[in-house]
Design a protein around this nucleic acid. Structure first.
Length: 437
DNA sequence: CATTTTGACGCT
DNA sequence: AGCGTCAAA
């Protein structure tokens, strides 16, 4: 459940940068002939043409959506180019996209604290950079403002397409603006420059949101895509949230959001204003209640963490339908393959980033053929992580066997495994001195 | 038992 | 330690 954090005392400038249909762009950079044509990236393709995980904007015009099957996409968009995710050891291999994501993070981490939020998203705390710009070269003194910054969307401004650029220029350069808005204006210019730099150096476009906190920045980055940016002045927040469907807010797209709608009749984020903090706490607990009360007002104290690398590595594969693994002999090679990939990834993390993983975790899902139907799930198991592919394979196999015994509970001899995942967590930097010894 | 493969974080 | 929720390609 979400937890409320105290708001920093001073106003911050926060950006959320989100790559546009990222996997598609990565494939289009590799194969330039795909640029500008309807394209999607699919995982596997033998079952109904594979599952779409990224869709280009050209393809979206035809109604192609993520989660569609390749065959289905071909029906609504016969000319669509379906590019397959690379496969290694019989499973999808996402390393190409991880590496492309790292390229982007390196460029975005140069202007302030940067948090890698996912393979293709970051949060930036640009407060310092914005303050510095405001004191040295405030926007109203600039002779020329980047065209990219002028193309920004400013929430709350009249959206007359003819004079949009003029309004934006006026907003950016208003010398009578309050300090908060001036800082945001600086953020807009910095983010425009960062996005241009990313495009120039990687050929990837991205969209961005600029606001006073992470929640609003994230909301804004999704409002105008692809390749655009949106700023959220404080004065626009009440109206924005008043009509924002509750499930569009981060963290409220699932069960909590549905429960707000079902149990309290809350349809929009603004509707939350009808409830006292105490009432929300009564329903959802102290932490979540306060968090809800705050987001209704556009308040979110979440800090941008300075973290450019993932906190864990995982490798998994599902075995749906007839593919379920029904014998120890069939599980073993798959588990070994997953461990091999994991071993390579943590070894590379050690060499590139001087970090060591300390815990190995095995997750599985399965079913058993049983007289009395049971709800028991396959239990997750963990142990200290020892480096070396063979050791990881050995340890993961022990974890699997112990999980399977618990799962079967002496109830059944007939079973199937439908998903296997190994992951490495508790990743810590190796102290610099210990590298010398 | 056909989206799949990730990854972060909160609760107990 | 292990489970559940949420999100995005």
């Amino acid at each position: 459940m979400p937890v409320a954090r105290p708001e920093p005392l001073a106003s911050r400038v926060i950006a959320h940068v989100d790559m546009d249909c990222f996997y598609v762009q990565v494939e289009q950079r590799k194969r330039p002939e795909l640029k500008g044509v309807p394209t999607a990236v699919v995982q596997y393709n033998s079952w109904k043409g594979g599952a779409l995980i990224a869709v280009s904007y050209e393809a979206r015009k035809f109604g192609v959506q993520r989660s569609m099957r390749g065959d289905e996409a071909k029906k609504v968009c016969p000319d669509i180019q379906l590019v397959q995710v690379p496969v290694a050891r019989g499973k999808a291999d996402l390393n190409l996209y991880r590496d492309a994501g790292s390229e982007v993070v390196s460029l975005l981490a140069t202007k302030g604290r940067c948090e890698r939020a996912s393979i293709d998203e970051v949060y930036l705390d640009l407060t310092g950079a914005a303050e510095q710009m405001l004191s040295a070269t405030p926007p109203d003194t600039l002779e020329e403002i980047d065209e990219e910054a002028l193309k920004s969307h400013v929430l709350g401004l009249p959206n007359d397409p003819c004079s949009q650029g003029e309004y934006v220029k006026q907003w950016l350069c208003r010398s009578d603006a309050d300090h908060q808005d001036k800082l945001l204006a600086c953020g807009v210019i910095i983010v425009a420059q960062l996005r241009m730099d990313v495009l120039k150096k990687t050929s990837f476009t991205c969209s961005a949101g600029i606001a006073h906190n992470k929640m609003l920045a994230k909301l804004a980055s999704g409002m105008h895509k692809p390749a655009q940016q949106t700023v959220v002045p404080s004065s626009s927040v009440t109206e924005l949230l008043a009509s924002l469907p509750i499930n569009k807010m981060k963290q409220l797209g699932g069960k909590l959001g549905s429960s707000l709608q079902r149990d309290l009749g809350v349809t929009t984020v603004g509707n939350l204003l009808d409830f006292t903090e105490e009432k929300l706490q009564e329903y959802y607990g102290r932490n979540t209640g306060t968090w809800l009360w705050n987001i209704a007002r556009g308040i979110s104290g979440d800090e941008v963490e300075g973290r450019l690398l993932p906190k864990s590595h995982g490798c998994g594969k599902t075995f749906p339908g007839q593919q379920a693994l029904r014998t120890l002999t069939s599980v073993k090679p798959w588990l070994n393959g997953l461990c091999e990939e994991l071993s390579e990834r943590i070894q590379s993390d050690l060499e590139k980033n001087k970090r060591v993983a300390h815990t190995l975790i095995l997750h599985a899902e399965g079913f058993k053929v049983c007289e009395v139907p049971t709800n028991r799930k396959f239990p997750s198991k963990s142990c200290p992580l020892r480096y070396g592919t063979a050791k990881i394979q050995e340890d993961a196999w022990k974890l699997f066997e112990s999980g399977l015994r618990e799962f079967l509970d002496l109830q059944s001899n007939e079973w199937g495994i439908t998903s296997l995942t190994v992951s490495a967590s508790k990743i810590l930097p190796v102290p610099a001195v210990s590298l010398l010894i």
